[in-house]
Design a protein around this nucleic acid. Structure first.
Lengths: 116, 116
DNA sequence: CTGTCATTAAACCGAATGGTTGACAAATGG
DNA sequence: CCATTTGTCAACCATTCGGTTTAATGACAG
């Protein structure tokens, strides 16, 4: 029995992941979490936003499965869960062949079609 | 002079790309465009949405730099421009080491071609 | 008990999103 | 000329987003 909700190929999960990545604040938070586990307050610190706003961002990342949280007393420790990123990476990988060197030739051909 | 708006590392562009990818309809449109250049009507056909809605989706993809359009008479031909996807791919590549090391058997099993 | 600290919850705001409908423009074809 | 096709635009609607402020929860320190 496969856990579809956490599958790399679950399109709904992909929606949430890509949407989570669509915000620079959240992307920067992920970068920060890549180097060290942090509390919500630490994640909020680099930004000129309220703690409540940062808390919302963390929740979005959590909903996308990119962050896991462990509550210890009154502080919430967040750590990166990279697995959903692999799903996004896989999705993009399909298009890898299109941006290679060969594309330029194809593009030139499409732009200047001297024959059919 | 560097064209920042089309740079792979332009964060604003990355915002728009990830946001464009956060919708399953648009992802499917990109898939379709990967195999063949299509008109807006052709892109809209597989979905139960109005042509106007599809037109909006195409515009979002265009704003993200993922689709280029050439108008020929009354029909608009859209084709994939994959370069911004390379930027997104690059961003994700940074995190590859986080999931690459700990790929267990189950995850390898789930690593199948996209069904989307 | 009483504060203070870390964080979420709730209510609100303006802007964006994804969808609709109806009107419009322009090219095509009788 | 007239109708149809292709697509956009404008207005509208409900929902979501990213932000705020103010309140509430809950854990530690006196």
């Amino acid at each position: 029995m496969v856990d579809l909700s956490s599958s790399r190929n679950n399109p709904q999960r992909l929606d949430r992941v890509f949407q989570a990545l669509a915000d620079p604040t959240r992307r920067q938070m992920l970068r920060s979490l890549a180097s060290r586990e942090s509390t919500v307050g630490e994640l909020a610190a680099p930004f000129r936003i309220s703690l409540a706003a940062a808390s919302k961002h963390v929740k979005v990342l959590e909903r996308a499965g990119l962050v896991r949280r462990t509550v210890q007393g009154r502080t919430h420790f967040c750590r990166l869960d990279p697995k959903p990123l692999a799903g996004a990476h896989d999705w993009l990988k399909f298009y890898e062949r299109f941006w290679g060197e060969k594309l330029d030739a194809l593009e030139a051909l499409l732009r200047h079609p001297d024959k059919e």
